[in-house]
Amino acid sequence: MLNIARIPLPALIGIVLTSLFVLAAIFAPWIAPHGNAEIVSDVPWEPMSSAHWLGTDNLGRDLLSRMIYGARITLFIAVLATALSFSLGAILGFSAAVFGGWYDTILSRLIDLLMSIPTLIMALVVLSVLPSNVVTLILVMGVLDSTRVYRLSRAVAVDINVMDYVEAAKLRGEGSAWIIFREILPNALSPLVSELGLRFIYAVLFLSTLSFLGLGVQPPDADWGGMVKENKDGIVFGIAAALIPAAAIAALAISVNLVADWVLNRTASLKGGRG
């Protein structure tokens, strides 16, 4: 089925880098040379050496180990938040397009209401009230992001809903579940997949922002965004420790989107990817 020689080079790069990040995240405790919160040096921001490949951070912890544990936290939260926003947004969006009428109107206005409040402020308010843990973080990020997915999937589904094949399914007497999941979803996949790559990265950045502001992942754990914050003071002294997690975010963003582009190319084919 999947011929490795036929995967284009950019997609291959994306796949390799993304799997590296994912593997690092999964096997963090076994790969990382030191513990996440283990202080290995008395001096903050020790330069790169053979003992500490990426040097140490502001508290003298091994930066490489922190990066690997950080990948775990960052990916875990971003993946779950994106999954939540997509399932919620897409199902609500598709159903609004299929049912129409009052259901659509009420849902759409509620979503508008939610979108009219700036996402960051909304998240800050909610997170400062609710207990600060990973579950709340994922829920807040997922729900807030689902408004965008709702908009997109509703717009796409409205167009598909008027196609003759959907009408044929309705004439056959099919239920809403079949129409949404079997008739509309496969045809709406292309725009959704391209949005998925983008939204996942926004989730990583949003998490970074929240951590930066102190409402995201709580210390001693840290996602990459939080690590930028921890080490930002070093930049003044010409220490590059803050740039390493920033570069990791950029690398993840690019590689995930390379994969998304490739998936998009394959799903856009109407000949089952055989053409």
Binding site: M163, A168, A169, L171, G173, N187, L270
Partner: peptide, 22 residues
């Protein structure tokens, strides 16, 4: 369902009357 079964329809544009993903 029985009424729906006994009354079928064929469309003018066959290419949009079939789900391109099936």
């Amino acid at each position: 369902k029985e009424d729906l079964r006994q009354l079928q329809m064929i469309y003018q544009m066959a290419d949009v009357a079939m789900n391109p993903r099936q």
